[in-house]
Nucleic acid binder design. Structure first.
Length: 680
RNA sequence: GGCGAGAUAGCUCAGUAGGUUAGAGCGCAGCACUCAUAAUGCUGAGGUCGAGGGUUCGAAUCUCUCUCUCGCUACCA
């Protein structure tokens, strides 16, 4: 139901999680594209609100707080202001950048819940759940260990026994123990509310799979289809936690809304904070709602949030969700924990005044259809070869010539030649051709279109050679400079969504007033006699040493990561010698190895232990090929209770060193150690 | 293993109602020019369109199988 010409727009951006700063991956996928889109709409004088904010709830923030000995509020305060400031400095032109810890958000989210509750849109389930009195919290199934009632295995999880494969409920476990504290948990009854997503399946299928088959991106559509085909289940909207939006029910004082439920409501709260007229942006059919997000958020914005809005009944649904893929950095996945990222706040310090360069590079290389790679070398090349050499250079040429020949005044053209008129005609089409691409969310192409205009300018000057004609035909030169200045003026307007700082500078240099995008189709953007200001360079070359400094920075991260690998996992509790001596560790040699069918990582391995030949199943196929393993000496736990995996009985466990990068390596005895030798 | 997305020039990417010599930008080579931050313009080289079958008069484009990358998920750790 894409209305071609809506009255107004509501553009939201994924709320960054306030547990760390923002990096180029976030920018390329979400904020820069959204900002381009919004600036374009504003240039067309459309009624638009551009919404952002920090997502400040959820368990990871409470963990960070605990680790640093601070309150969750202190953590989110720090990152919220950091994120907000750096967005502003980059020119991400939010109408409001709010936060989910605000009072208004708490009220909005809890009202939202309440309405669903009162209209019986939620399912209630009361269950006795295990509660850890020391850790002071309810225990999810996976945080419970106990004895399996089926096979007697002592370390079955609350939801499943990994030994015999039978699925369990936490209640069936014999002698359950909390994985958090090791204590015996107590039973406590707790009630939770669920959004019955399964009830929305038919409606979602029609809405997405039929009505948005052609206008949504294929990655978005495919993800949704996958989820819908797998079937949807009711999803709990409340949790037994303290950090978050309190559930507005007398009987649920100690519960909060699950973060996935409260976060998207943050869009609504932020709009509400922005304007008393907020409802027309959320409840009027003539509003076009667009969510800019990364691909990790597709299911929330295409399935869950729309179901929430539908459940409420008063809200409009997103017209499009142009989710982007991911951006890599120098060939490796961006990672906050490994500090493998270009942080926005650091970029702004290192490359002061070069906001537009980053915006340009991230747009040129935006992961619109597949994951892309950001490299500093590419960053430098695009700045030097495109922004400086093509864009900046053309503008400089046109303005310098104007200064040289006409004392900074736009000359009155002589009779315009046919080719002049053709050029003027051409430049008048750029706003529309660029705009069409923006409206289809093809921002990479749109930006290229803008650059074509600069190329056109360079070519026009080269073809007409005013520096030669000035000696022989002064009248003709007036026309040429006049036309060149029209191109430069158009460039100033058309580049605004992509390069707002540059647009400002260029407009100031040329003394241009702001203009409606749709009025740019005129062939005269700047009048004869119009005085322009002194030209300064719009862009400057980036030197090799500046790029090298960034590579050095990354190298430090890499080195630190390797160092950190030494002490990643904290030491476990001390054990007695008796505890240790219960283990029977032995040397063994791999005789045979083959993949277990229908699994990703499992290998069935036959071992010579000196005492016997036995079979173990090991989850190491990701790092080791079966054929390479024959003859490999290994250390095994020989007296581990056998357990069945995929129908094969595994009689022991091969010891593997688990590197922080997730790769597994054999703990291999020296070659001359004998099979069956005890390890102690 | 299941599901989804992707694999096109050295690099980053376009390219579907299947149709003559597969495109752009950057990089590279040569030429021209000097107003401009040695910038610009022109010309050119460079591709078995991931591999292999199939449908078709004809496939980058439709279909099947396979390989690799990314994500979700399962199993595993």
């Amino acid at each position: 139901m894409s209305s071609k010409n809506p009255q107004r727009y509501n553009v939201t951006t994924a709320l960054p999680y306030a547990n760390g700063p923002v990096h180029i991956g976030h920018l390329a996928g979400v904020y820069v594209p959204a900002d381009i889109y919004v600036r374009y709409l504003r240039a067309k004088e459309k009624d638009v609100v551009f919404i952002g904010g920090s997502d400040e709830h959820g368990v990871p923030i409470t963990i960070s707080a605990k680790n640093e000995g601070k309150t969750p509020q202190q953590i989110v305060d720090r990152y919220h202001s950091m994120i907000k400031d750096s967005f502003e400095e980059l020119g991400i032109s939010f109408d409001i950048y709010s936060r989910t810890s605000s009072q208004l958000h708490h009220k909005t989210a809890s009202d939202f819940f309440k309405k669903l509750y009162e209209n019986n849109k939620l399912i209630e389930k009361t269950e006795d759940q295990y509660y850890d009195q020391e850790a002071n919290q309810f225990l999810a199934d996976r945080y419970l260990l106990g004895t399996c009632p089926q096979c007697g295995y002592e370390k079955a999880y609350g939801d499943q026994c990994e030994s015999c494969g039978s699925s369990l409920s936490a209640d069936e476990l014999i002698n359950p123990v909390s994985k958090l504290s090791g204590n015996k948990p107590v039973k406590k009854s707790t009630k939770h509310w669920y959004l019955p997503l399964d009830q929305y399946e038919g409606w979602l299928r029609k809405w997405i799979l039929e009505e948005h088959k052609t206008d949504w991106k294929s990655n978005v559509y495919g993800q949704c289809k996958s989820w819908l085909d797998n079937g949807l289940n009711p999803r709990a909207v409340t949790r037994d936690l303290s950090w978050g939006v309190k559930v507005p029910l007398e009987e649920a004082k100690d519960k909060v809304l699950y973060v996935w439920f409260d976060a998207p409501i943050g869009y609504i709260s932020a709009t509400r904070e922005l304007t008393n007229d907020w409802e027309k942006y959320w409840k009027d059919d003539d509003t076009k709602l667009v969510h800019f997000i990364g691909k990790d958020n597709i299911v929330f914005h295409c399935i869950i949030f729309p179901s929430m809005l539908k459940a409420d009944g008063d809200y409009i649904l997103p017209d499009n969700v142009p989710a982007n893929e991911f951006l890599n950095l120098e060939g490796d996945k961006i990672s906050t924990s490994r500090n493998w990222a270009v942080w926005l706040h650091e970029y702004l310090q290192d490359f002061h005044g070069k906001q537009d360069v980053l915006r340009y590079v991230l747009t040129a290389n935006a992961p619109e259809t597949k994951d892309n790679d950001f490299t500093w070398k590419d960053f430098q090349a695009r700045n030097n070869n495109e922004l400086v050499a093509i864009f900046g250079n053309f503008v400089n040429r046109a303005l310098v010539l104007t200064k040289k020949y006409y004392e900074q005044q736009v000359p009155t053209p002589d009779t315009l030649t046919e080719s002049d008129q053709e050029i003027l005609q051409q430049i008048s089409t750029y706003p529309q051709s660029t705009g069409e691409k923006i409206e289809r969310y093809r921002l990479r192409e749109a930006q290229q279109e803008m650059m074509k205009l600069a190329r056109l300018g360079n070519k026009y000057l080269a073809d007409n050679e005013p520096w030669k004609l000035i000696k022989t035909d002064e009248q003709r030169v007036k026309s040429i400079i006049y036309v060149a200045l029209q191109i430069a003026a158009q460039l100033a307007y058309v580049c605004e969504p992509f390069l707002p700082f540059t647009a400002r500078k260029l407009k100031d240099m040329m003394n241009l007033a702001d203009r409606n995008w749709d009025a740019l189709t005129t062939q005269k953007l700047i009048d004869p006699g119009h005085k322009i200001n002194k030209a300064t360079h719009l862009f400057n070359p980036i030197e090799d040493h500046e790029i090298q400094a960034q590579y050095d920075k990354l190298a430090i991260s890499k080195a630190k990561n390797e160092e950190a690998e030494q002490n990643l996992e904290p030491l476990k509790e001390p054990v007695t010698y008796e505890d240790f001596s219960k283990l029977d560790l032995r040397v063994a040699t791999i005789l045979e190895a083959e993949k277990v069918p229908k699994t990703g990582k499992l290998l069935k391995i036959t071992l010579d232990t000196g005492i016997d030949k036995r079979t173990v199943v090991a989850g190491i196929a990701k790092d080791h090929k079966p054929e390479d393993l024959i003859g490999q000496k290994v250390t095994i736990v020989a007296n581990l209770q056998p357990r069945k995996l995929k129908g094969i009985e595994s009689q022991g466990m091969i010891l593997m060193a688990n590197n922080p990068d997730g790769t597994l390596h054999f703990v291999s005895p020296e070659e001359d150690s004998k099979n069956g030798a005890q390890v102690n």
